[in-house]
Design a protein around this nucleic acid. Sequence first.
DNA 1: TAGCGAACTGAATTTTTATTCATTGCTGCA
DNA 2: TGCAGCAATGAATAAAAATTCAGTTCGCTA
Lengths: 321, 321
Amino acid sequence: MARTNELRLITRITQMYYLEGLKQSQISAILNISQATISRLLKRAMDENIVRITINVPRGTFPDLETGLRERFGLKEAIVAECGEDREESILSAVGDAAAHFLSTTLNDREVIGISSWSASLLRMVDSLHPLKRVKAARVVQILGGMGNPSVQVHATHLTTRLAQLTGAQPQLLSAPGVASSIEARRALLADGFVQATMDEFRDVSLALVGIGAVEPSRMLATSGNVFTPEELQELKDSGAEGDICLRFFAADGTPVRTPLDDRVISISLDELKGADRVVGIAGGARKDRAIKAALLGGYVDILITDKFTAGRLLGEPAGT
Amino acid sequence: MARTNELRLITRITQMYYLEGLKQSQISAILNISQATISRLLKRAMDENIVRITINVPRGTFPDLETGLRERFGLKEAIVAECGEDREESILSAVGDAAAHFLSTTLNDREVIGISSWSASLLRMVDSLHPLKRVKAARVVQILGGMGNPSVQVHATHLTTRLAQLTGAQPQLLSAPGVASSIEARRALLADGFVQATMDEFRDVSLALVGIGAVEPSRMLATSGNVFTPEELQELKDSGAEGDICLRFFAADGTPVRTPLDDRVISISLDELKGADRVVGIAGGARKDRAIKAALLGGYVDILITDKFTAGRLLGEPAGT
DNA sequence: TAGCGAACTGAATTTTTATTCATTGCTGCA
DNA sequence: TGCAGCAATGAATAAAAATTCAGTTCGCTA
């Protein structure tokens, strides 16, 4: 009885507050109950499930997948983009766009952005990026050397300078190939002052934007010159490499894979990468499933931006519509 | 696209706020978005129906009926009590209990309570009322004379003094019959100083508790003496009286009905009643349907306390379970 | 291509809400 | 019957959220 009376009162207050939009103080005045008590009764309404708050997921957003990814892989954030069809082109576009939005809304002032230069997703991101309005400024550091092939060198340079320009930052180029022809060649290149200067910046990177590579000839790698010989690729596979970030390879369980290649690569190391405040992995597509999963297991990435199909597969669930 | 990205962000923020229970400032810190913007995005989430708040009505409460009554009859409040079965006894108990709770939660300090003395519902209310804890104090004024029959006189007196006691107030009794035997008798009674004093208080009543009577011999009226003769009742009916408050009669549409009886009744007038801040009508039961409706249409009551069956009938809907 | 107005933004401020604190009455137990 | 512990309350205060304000940017129009 008394219980029912109290429930009635709580229900009425709930109605006034949530439906009629009255302030607690107004309700308090109407009912001659102190505002403190109104607040307490509203909390009771929560506890007793008299108010129920549901989130109505808008089309094209996938909070479940995102939460799944966050929890399953211990990510700080996960962003799952809507995507028309499960093919490279569509995915690149979706993921790049999402990444651009992410960057533009969460970039800090005075942030030092590290960007890996060989990723189609990152290219797309920069393409969809609008000049950042607010006084967001920073430095943009290229954390992976360019490609031997001059045409892709240009891509890498473009990526870094464009991003710097859009964010009002100072570009810091890494004027060296991503893969030197030999250990000695690498040593020689590192002797260069500019290269040195940029590599010294690696430890200052606060936000790293990286693609995630699969160990197999990707379209871009294939067309952009003979970075690795088929033999080298085979060797990588044999030593268990499943994917890479900035050409630093890791196995299916995420453990780093050291091969002689390491000594020829000019890029941030996985350890240096972990020093960044936020490492954002941007990748999607069935071809990369295993590589992405490996990167997540290795904990190289704090934030993953991907598409709904890939997200679904990473979680072993069917993708939403 | 941009739209989708934004929706995703809003959804994520909504999730953090409502599901994970984070403060706006925490979200703001995590996402590097100002608290002001978080607040604005959450409002957008409301507008766009991404958050949906539903009220889960607990068993035994009837906000729909209450809202219906409020809106249909322009009431300040309506309280609909749960009630086992649609019979007098059950209803009296439910309504009395609800009224007691109402009184105990919304009584102001220094309130002047007017109470009509001939109502079974009010008796029940006082019976279920606990002594008011908090320093609620006031005056309790009897706004309708007692009954000729001494045994009910006691009831009326009891009602007023008990209520005064429970609310820590000063009782102000009306030591006169509700209906004088003649106009002259009434005049004589009014000459009495105590009666005068009490009647002068009528205009100070801030909270009036009144029953609503049907024009027909109710059980109580019937057993409590010959207040009205069958002829008088017939006369009332003939002049269109449908119900009364404190023996002041009104027609089905709420307009006051004047009969010679008026000049013999010793009670607050309908006009004086309207001067009270809050007039609480307490009544239920099929027998009183028409009277209650008439009282509501007449606007004599600001707050109605009734049972679910009566409420349902007043609204012309079937009662909830 | 300059100028105008609408739309956004973050800092500061105001408004609203939650919580602390001191008090009080009640309950159960000695 | 008296007292300790507990629950509930309102006033005061702290915390959180909404809004104002001032400054920008951006898209149009002239």
